[in-house]
Write a protein that binds this DNA or RNA. Structure first.
Lengths: 345, 345
DNA sequence: ATGAAAGCGCTAACAG
DNA sequence: CTGTTAGCGCTTTCAT
């Protein structure tokens, strides 16, 4: 095939290669003839062979947890991040290799590089567990380029792109305080996710700044699922009735929505008796009643940034800069956080 | 590397290859030595080189529309389908190559095969447009294995996996009729999607079976977005007030939810003055007020089935059976379709 | 059962 | 500028 193109154009196969992969210098006239011949014979070089010869897969790996039916992560989150990664990878000529990780499967990320399936990888939904740390350490040691998304590992300077969750919590608290709330509750997610800790940190800091005291009884725990939020409704309702809290910040929208439903069933009016703020500003917050105030996180941009920075490293070969990007978040006010009655109380 | 393994095991490189890729017959003792040597040297064969030698990419391509901010498709839909495909591909030793298609980019699917990036591909979110038909015809003509998901092309016998949307509509109508509804409205999506037509067909058929007449004024059109459902609220409200309809079936959940919100704003009580049924049973229908009756579509299973059947063809080389699978759907009853008042009226 | 050697389709020196 | 040639790391006849 390639040979026939060479013949038709009256050149050697090497020249065909040079023309079609933009490499070496070729006379314009020659290039034109080759291009024509290729067109005529409907020939395109095999990416597989090219990549083999170059010893580069041309693939950007994206590792994500297999989303089971009841997933802790929202489909919104993954769709946005993935779209951002995909768009960027495409622009830079990389293909996306999707790697689903079953929950309890060994995390042998390094093998993806050894087998030359990928040239770099982005890890989404990583957790701070021993096995994860081990897998990442192996990547680091092998000098395999990788990047974490929305996860930080204390004590390790891994490449990462994250949202400024801490400031998000601070904004949320300030907003509530400006609404007159003084007894703010925080419904957090599991500590395996650094975001959980970041959000809590922001919450505490903002309380302090506002001269409010931090009370352990005002910190609740869920697992980021809607159900876990729903299950906390009883506890929250009790606190509300006893006048011990006048607002809740949930660490993600799913829990906030579960909580909202639970409170509704218990006769507590969100947005009146109590203010509620979610986090992520996912597509569902506009569909609840009342609409949910939430912290918008630029997931799409996070994906773009992660892919972009990582591919810089993958391609630059040399001056590979490590990075730890933090993108700003933004509080989107809606009806759930007005808490008019609470203010008056 | 491979050479060192061969040395360490005291065999030739060919034997190393035979052992590590399970090919030819090797004495057990020899195999053990090779495996040990490989382990010791931390050697794994390069998938890139293997695939090149075998002239197979080992990749299953998944083509999906780039999800823009305001997407017609729900993230739920893609997540489920993709997870199903991913799980199945993984089980069968294939990697997933994700291919985002920008809306107005030329659809050169065949090139993915020519460049040997993929061995087969699944097309998600295809539309019945001339350019799409052209791209698919080229695939067909090149004997490139592919499979459509949730889309049918009239007059072409392409491999496909779909839900039985028609029966879904029939079930929905029957359910409404059993609730006492007799003036059922249908909010459909664009005709580029064969599912739209299928659902409408079922609607008409069920009306006929129930002895109800089909009225054009009872067929509304949206574009599957929440907004398009929202925008139809005024028209629907008017019909309700004039007593000309007592139920609405929306062709997907997003439109149903938009409609629900719009009706709520107009003071129409869904589940009382009018019954409402959505389609897809996506994760959001449990979060609305009232919860939405919806037609559950097994998206995950659709993904599994598509990947499984397609890979059968990709691997079998010979007795490649064409297929057109239709998976059953199931009506999930919730509060939005009780329409008690309408029944009495 | 194993080794030797050819070749997959392309890139990349190296000559000319 | 262009042709020649030697690999890239693996699979696979073909011998032995």
């Amino acid at each position: 095939m390639r040979k026939k193109v060479a013949e038709l154009a009256g050149v050697s196969e090497a020249t065909v290669s040079r023309v079609l992969s933009g490499g070496g210098a070729v006379k314009e006239e020659t290039a034109r003839r080759v291009l024509e011949a290729a067109q005529q014979l409907n020939y395109v070089p095999s990416a597989l062979a090219q990549r083999f010869a170059l010893r580069k897969s041309g693939n950007l790996g994206v590792i994500l947890p297999m989303l089971p039916k009841v997933n802790l992560f929202s489909t919104y989150y993954f769709s946005e991040v993935l779209s951002g990664i995909g768009m960027t990878a495409k622009q830079r000529g990389y293909d996306l290799l999707l790697l689903f990780r079953e929950p309890h499967e060994p995390r042998d990320y390094a093998n993806l590089f050894r087998t030359q399936k990928i040239d770099g990888c982005i890890i989404v939904g990583a957790q701070d567990t021993p096995s994860e740390r081990e897998a990442l350490a192996e990547l680091k040691q092998g000098h395999y380029p990788f990047c974490l998304v929305n996860q930080r590992f204390e004590g390790e300077a891994y490449n990462s792109v994250d949202a400024d969750q801490r400031t998000g919590s601070i904004d949320a608290v300030r907003h509530l305080v400006s609404q007159g709330c003084t007894r703010i509750c925080f419904l957090n997610g599991p500590s395996e996710y650094s975001n959980s800790e970041d959000r809590l940190l922001g919450y505490r800091q903002a309380l302090e700044e506002a001269g409010l005291s931090f009370l352990p009884e005002r910190v609740l725990l869920g697992n980021y699922s809607r159900k876990s939020g729903y299950l906390q409704a009883k506890a929250v309702a009790a606190l509300v009735r006893e006048g011990r809290i006048d607002a809740v910040i949930a660490a993600n929208d799913r829990m906030a929505i579960g909580l909202l439903q639970g409170l509704k069933e218990l006769g507590i009016r969100v947005g009146e008796e109590i203010a509620l703020i979610g986090c992520d500003d996912s597509d569902i917050v506009r569909m609840t009643d009342p609409p949910l105030t939430s912290i918008r996180v630029p997931f799409f941009e996070i994906g773009c940034e992660a892919a972009s920075k990582l591919l810089d490293i993958v391609t630059n070969t040399e001056d590979a800069e490590a990075f730890a990007v933090k993108l700003p978040v933004k509080l989107i006010e809606r009806a759930s956080s007005s808490a008019e009655d609470a203010k008056k109380a």
